[in-house]
Amino acid sequence: MRIMCLTIVSLFLLTSCQADTDTPFNQQLKATYPDIHVVESIVTDDVIYVAMIIKPLKQFSEQKIAADIKKDLGKKYPNHLVYTSSDMKATIEVRKQTSPLTQERLNQLISYDQSIEKDD
């Protein structure tokens, strides 16, 4: 029974949008792309990983939006490898990601980027 309460509590906690503890980069993303509802991102010196949840009504084309943002960011930060994902799982994983990014962890995150499957 305890586990049940734990899950419900954590479900609600994680879903509240932390507008306040957002990194400046996230706020900037939200400003430039209005469709984003919740965004989490990891920025290292050579990789930018943006996980987002699109507003409910726009979710029909969430993958297209994620792809556009990826292209856009790719232009803005040419010397960075940019990955975006509109998958809910990506947002959850990024939010859990406290320790610095290992390559293996990064590969797992990249697997959530749907646009990669479409390209190759």
């Binding site: 479900l11 990506a90 697997s111």
Partner: peptide
């Protein structure tokens, strides 16, 4: 999604 490794 939360507790296992499944994507959407």
């Amino acid at each position: 999604l939360y507790f296992f490794d499944f994507s959407e």
